[in-house]
Design a protein around this nucleic acid. Structure first.
Length: 313
RNA sequence: GCGUCGGUGGUAGAGUGGUCAAUUACAACAGACUGUAAAUCUGUCGCCUCCGGGCUACGAAGGUUCGAAUCCUUCCCGACGCA
């Protein structure tokens, strides 16, 4: 593939119009987002900011399919390995880091490429939402988690009726976090939206279910061969609890169950195949709401590069 | 061949005369999500429906009964035991 000279992005974040463009590459798992991001970055002089809620953690490499140095082909990647898996990373932290990184990349005249499958994180950045950081409070969570959803809902209602109003009253995870924030800040402040200094161009990658299924199976096999289980064993030896590993979901959850001998290897593999596919479907449910995404098949790389050339020439 | 236990919805597995279209879990399908998001949560889940209900169903065929997934008979299939 020919590499065109990198194009400098003219405007700094503060400049008015035309707005500085930021490219977003999102989509389902196993559709080749990372490869596309590298190709685009090389063609248009971009740098990649990962938007993946599990790749932010150090040591979760094979199981998350974290891009390797070699695969990066010299393209800088950010927001990988920025947190310890033992701690819980939050969107607020992600958002702060991502915003800073976008500004930094632009200031150096490069194209920021936000790339990943965590729709929630991408939204936090592209919607301009601002929220103060509230660190997780393990002690509080431990006590709250023992209570039932109705009890938690009642608690939240007392603390902050406004937040209680819209919340999913049966969702304990959400209730706990809302109470945690309310206790920390007095109330759960309404999320404010800042004016967006950038224009986000969103392209999505998706595959028909049967193709996705095949890709997921093959990828899983590769990961196992690449030593995914050794990685999990190492993580546990380094102090990552089984409970926490289960919380991490997908590969890590299933490996944790297998390594604790709660399920067989066969069950782990079969369970993972369906869990990953379910995840891919959930991702689409989320992304579908955003009508500004232009969807492509991974096969359309040339088409994508061509259409982007109009934007970033 | 004899004996025992079993055959229930896509799967596992409850139910053992009426309140059973059949608990539950999983899968599937749809959806929510604006402070843990690979997480968490919700709805649907035999067929048809004018949403009142109608129809077909618990291995098969008969039978008992007002009424059977549930009891009886025979047959088919499976597991185990004895040969």
């Amino acid at each position: 593939m020919k590499i065109l000279p990198s194009v400098s992005i003219p405007s700094a974040p503060k400049s008015k119009s035309p707005k500085t463009k930021v490219l977003v590459i999102l989509g389902q798992t196993a559709t080749g987002k990372s490869d596309l991001a590298v190709a685009v970055a090389r063609k248009f002089g971009g740098e990649v900011i990962s938007a993946d809620s599990r790749q932010v953690y150090k040591g979760l490499d094979i199981g998350t399919g974290k891009i390797t140095k070699k695969e990066m082909q010299g393209v800088p990647h950010y927001l990988l390995d920025v947190a310890s898996a033992k701690k819980k990373f939050t969107v607020a932290e992600y958002k702060a880091l991502a915003d800073a990184k976008i500004a930094d990349i632009i200031s150096r005249g490069k194209l920021p490429i936000l790339c990943g499958g965590t729709g929630f994180y991408i939204n936090a950045v592209t919607s301009g939402a601002v929220f103060p950081e509230v660190p997780p409070n393990q002690k509080l969570r431990a006590t709250l988690e023992k209570k039932s959803a109705p009890v938690l809902f009642a608690m939240l209602k007392k603390l902050d009726a406004r937040r209680a109003n819209g919340i999913d009253a049966k969702n304990k995870v959400r209730l706990v976090r809302a109470i945690e924030i309310a206790k920390y800040m007095g109330k759960v402040p309404a999320v404010k939206y800042a004016k967006l200094p950038y224009q986000f161009i969103k392209i999505g990658l998706t595959l028909p279910l049967p193709d996705l299924e095949t890709k997921i199976k093959i990828r899983l096999e590769k990961r196992i061969k690449a030593g995914m289980l050794r990685e999990a064993t190492r993580l546990h030896a380094a102090g990552l609890s089984w409970k926490r590993m289960e919380e991490l979901g997908l590969e890590y959850r299933h490996m944790a169950l297998y390594l604790q001998k709660k399920i067989s290897k066969q069950e782990m593999i079969a369970g993972l195949e369906t869990a990953i596919l379910q995840y891919a479907k959930r991702q689409m449910t989320w992304f579908k709401r955003d009508k500004k995404i232009t969807w492509y098949s991974p096969k359309d790389e040339r088409k994508i590069l061509l259409s982007l050339a109009k934007n970033f020439h």
